[in-house]
Amino acid sequence: MKIIKIFKKSGVFAEDKDIARELRLKKITPLLKKEGSIVLDFDGVESATQSFIHALISNIIREFGPEILDRISFKNCNDTVRQIIKTVVDYMQI
């Protein structure tokens, strides 16, 4: 299972959605196309914006369908990051 460390690119406050989009296009999507499952590791990330998480995962849910969430695990998320991920995952399935 491939682990993608978000902090390395985003820093403590994950707010730059260009970085999020780049992570998605260059790492997450290609891995999901060939690997079984991936882990998005938020270790070190204190906070994130909804824009960042949206740019990171919304199009993956749209492109692969909600079933893709069975192959993505979110690791080391504090309460704030967890709530924002839940928000994006929620509204992308409505």
Binding site: R24, S51, H54, A55, S58, N59, T87, V88, Y91, I94
Partner: peptide, 20 residues
């Protein structure tokens, strides 16, 4: 919620959700 100038699609594009 869900309204952005970049698209009429509710929920936005891959880059804008209309949530900020």
């Amino acid at each position: 919620p869900g309204v952005t100038g970049t698209t009429r699609r509710i929920g936005g594009t891959d880059y804008n959700a209309g949530a900020g």
